[in-house]
Simulated scan of single mutants.
Amino acid sequence: MNKQQMKRLATPMAIIVVLVFIYLIPTAFSQDDMTQVPVTAFTVLERPQVAFNHDMHNEKAEIDDCVVCHHGRTDDGAMDMENSSEGESCDSCHLVKPENGETPLMRAYHRQCIACHVKSLKGPVTCGECHTK
């Protein structure tokens, strides 16, 4: 391959690399600055917002796979532990007050966090341990 052919091949490859990089940046840093569990879906809070440093939690808990916390949803509405919902807010699937018997947002948060803490025998499990003043 001569220099001219290399130059023609390098330009499209550089564009592809840049596009892949741009596509992956939001995913890689999407929750770097997260310091509290999002509560914008709730109009009134019954308890203080939960402090939660996303990266520090995952490092300490040795969680590398996003689907551990960010489960997906199958076509029939069941939890899908094969496909991640990373990048979507919990309230995009779990409504505060669902009308069709699905898991409400508050219960989804509590089940997700407390069940993992109980299973691993680590982390807070009572209201006051998470919702601190």
Rank of each mutant, 00 (worst) to 15 (best):
V118L: 14
G87R: 14
D65L: 09
C93F: 07
G72K: 01
S89K: 11
G77D: 10
G77K: 13
D65W: 03
C66I: 05
I114T: 09
V67S: 12
H110S: 10
S84K: 06
E102Q: 15
I114A: 04
E82V: 12
A78L: 11
E82P: 00
M106W: 05
E86M: 13
N100Y: 13
D75K: 14
H94R: 03
M106T: 05
G101Y: 14
D80L: 13
E99M: 13
V67P: 07
S84H: 08
V68M: 12
H70M: 12
P98V: 08
M81E: 13
H71N: 03
P98N: 03
H70A: 08
C66S: 13
G77W: 11
C69P: 06
T103V: 15
D76N: 14
P104N: 14
C116H: 02
D91F: 07
M81P: 01
G101P: 06
H70I: 05
A78G: 11
I114Q: 01
N100Q: 12
A108R: 08
G87C: 06
V68C: 04
A78R: 12
H117I: 02
C93W: 09
E102G: 10
Q112I: 00
Y109D: 01
L95C: 00
L95E: 14
D75I: 07
S85C: 05
M106C: 02
A115R: 02
G87K: 12
